[in-house]
Design a protein around this nucleic acid. Structure first.
Length: 418
RNA sequence: CGGGGUGUAGCGCAGCUUGGUAGCGCGGCUGGUUUGGGACCAGUAGGUCGUAGGUUCGAAUCCUAUCACCCCGACCA
């Protein structure tokens, strides 16, 4: 892409209403803009990061036999009445009425809809297990949205659901998802941990949370050397102790801050029972299906990655989810046609190698361009001016390092690809 | 919902205490010189001071109400 065709919107000043670093950097680097409290528009740069995360998730889920679907966000109240959550869920469930005075809500989660979907088409144990997921916008009328997209009212979540004829099948699937989630977060190239957790009002009897480790995280975790452990809430119950310091002593675990980005649950028969989602078993009996549900906060991962990987200049994207792999910064290309032509040819050679490249062809001086791309956090920075054009070389600088070096293009391509 | 805070130009802010009709920096636009780490010079546009009401000869400034936004708490991917 060329910047002339891929608008970037960077800011020098931090907007006054941003508090945490990821929020500040997302606004300044032009990834998002606020519409109203807890609601953000995603600009081209930010959306590319979302797509990267979604693709990593898709690949791992498809590997374990989970197929993608898409369900409506506007959900009829009847289903929520049936599960009992119309009354239980509380004001976080945004409710409204259509022109026929029929009640609806904006889906904060999709157990009701998917259970309804499955019960209509599945009647035999032979059709099970079934694994489905969607990546879609969820809405929760949060008491207090905050920290930008970290806790937004409208956000993108991947939610997967599994249906089984018996507990054993669910147990097996749960472990498969756990492994897949580990792979997803490994592939995202973020420091993370999985902990035992409370299943909250989703229901069920076993659950694990996946956390991105970050000093600015909101959740307290107690972890061992292997980064395994438990959420503080679980620890409190388990050890009968409310004080954090006392718990650390008692458990001999390390205290870390985490940002919850994934949560998996064994729902069991909670929804299938109330919503009468049954199948016939091998011995001709009927049984309520066993369910699991598995969530990942896609938009929250964007913020969590930034919380974990940044410096005073801006974001430092891991290769896995960077909006672009490489930026080519042109010096004086608007006046120097040799430089322009040379930049174009270097750009083409990057594109030929399938390196995701953004070519900064703006009429601006070097300092401004470098500041912008360091803020945005592109891992590889290539600088080209008249010297490089004459020498048939480029200047190469990594986002993670201060040093620059003049390089032959082919050598650079090899280095970036490796 | 309880506690705290902020609304003045696209962004960051000053002005408010002590009323006299709005200013600075960045950004934008035009022209020129520039472009090797956020350039310089000259010019220029842009604000019913969140909204409504009140006090006053006169309100950004004082009073009342209201809305929005942010932070702390309860809740959560």
């Amino acid at each position: 892409m060329r910047v002339s065709h891929f608008p970037i919107f960077t800011l020098k000043d931090t907007p006054a209403d941003a508090e945490v670093i990821s929020h500040k950097l997302m606004i300044r680097s032009g990834m998002i803009r606020k519409l109203s409290s807890g609601q953000y528009s995603w600009l081209p740069l930010g959306l590319r990061v979302i797509k990267k995360i979604e693709d990593i998730i898709r690949i791992e889920l498809e590997k374990i036999g989970c197929s993608e679907i898409l369900m409506p966000s506007v959900q009829p109240s009847e289903l929520w009445q049936e599960s009992g959550r119309w009354d239980q869920y509380g004001p976080e469930l945004l409710r409204f009425t259509d022109r026929h005075q029929r009640d609806f809500c904006l889906g904060p989660t999709f157990e009701e809809v998917i259970t309804d979907l499955i019960r209509k088409d599945v009647s035999s144990y032979k059709q099970l297990p079934i694994n489905l997921f969607q990546i879609s916008t969820k809405f929760r009328d949060e008491i207090r949205p905050r920290f930008g997209v970290m806790r937004a009212r409208e956000f993108i979540m991947k939610d997967a659901y599994s249906f089984h004829a018996n507990q054993q099948s669910l147990d097996e699937a749960y472990e498969v998802y756990k492994t897949a989630y580990n792979n997803i977060f490994k592939n995202l190239m973020l420091d993370f941990t999985v902990v035992d957790a409370d299943s909250g009002n989703i229901g069920g009897n076993e659950s694990n949370e996946f956390h991105v480790i970050a000093d600015t995280g909101e959740d307290d975790l107690l972890l061992d050397d292997q980064l395994k452990g438990m959420n503080i809430e679980i620890a409190k119950v388990k050890y009968g102790e409310d004080d954090l310091e006392a718990l650390i002593k008692k458990t001999n675990l390390t205290h870390k801050k985490g940002i919850e980005v994934g949560h998996i649950f064994k729902l069991g028969q909670k929804y299938s029972e109330t919503m009468k989602a049954k199948v016939t078993t091998k011995d001709s009996k009927t049984v309520d299906m066993f369910m699991g549900c598995y969530g990942i906060g896609v938009t929250r991962i964007v913020a969590a990655a930034i919380e974990q990987l940044h410096d005073d200049k801006g974001i430092k994207w891991p290769a896995s989810i960077t909006p672009f792999n490489t930026v080519i910064i042109e010096i004086d290309g608007h006046k120097n046609s040799d430089v322009r032509a040379y930049c174009e040819s270097v750009y083409e050679s990057f594109i030929e190698k399938d390196i995701e490249t953004i070519y900064d062809d703006r009429d601006a001086n070097l300092g401004k361009k470098i500041k912008d791309w360091e803020l945005i956090g592109i891992p590889n920075i290539v600088i080209i001016g008249k010297n490089e054009s004459n020498n048939n070389t480029v200047i190469f600088k990594k986002r993670s390092s201060e040093s620059k070096s003049e390089m032959d293009i082919n050598n650079l391509l090899d280095e970036i690809i490796s």
